[in-house]
């Protein structure tokens, strides 16, 4: 149980980082942290007690394996995370080019 709660703590760290930090790069790091917390949680739901990695091999038959589906799903979500992060970093670099700062309190020309 404790391991699931640690995931939640990691997720909250990421959200805190997104909400509280002023530097754009730190916000991106916060997004990455909370993304990995969710991925970790998803992987943990696949675990079976005493299960082994879900890889078939010709030598030995595996009887008790962990659920392979979340692994495939998390791989997909990591790829999506890669795309989002690359896009965010590219936008952040362009912002630095235009505004000359990474501080979000100084980048406030639009008032949402």
């Amino acid at each position: 149980m404790i391991i699931y709660l640690l995931c939640l703590v990691l997720f909250c760290c990421g959200i805190y980082c997104i909400l509280r930090k002023r530097n754009i790069i730190k916000i991106i790091v916060g997004i990455i942290i909370s993304e990995y917390a969710v991925n970790l949680f998803f992987i943990l739901t696949a675990y079976r007690v005493g299960g082994r990695a879900p890889i078939f091999s010709s030598e030995a038959e595996i009887l008790n394996m962990v659920d392979p589906l979340p692994h495939a799903l998390v791989l997909t979500s990591i790829v999506i995370g890669l795309a989002t992060t690359a896009l965010l970093v590219a936008i952040a670099m362009r912002i630095y080019e235009k505004y000359g700062t990474f501080d979000i309190t100084k980048i406030r020309e639009l008032k949402g």
Binding site: I15, I80, R94, Y99, E109
Partner: peptide
Amino acid sequence: TERHELEAAFKYAVMGTVGSLFILLGIA
């Protein structure tokens, strides 16, 4: 890729990503 577009896109991307994370957590 002008000043306002970039600022708006960054805000949108950050909030959209957080929204997607909630959805993924729900799916998990």
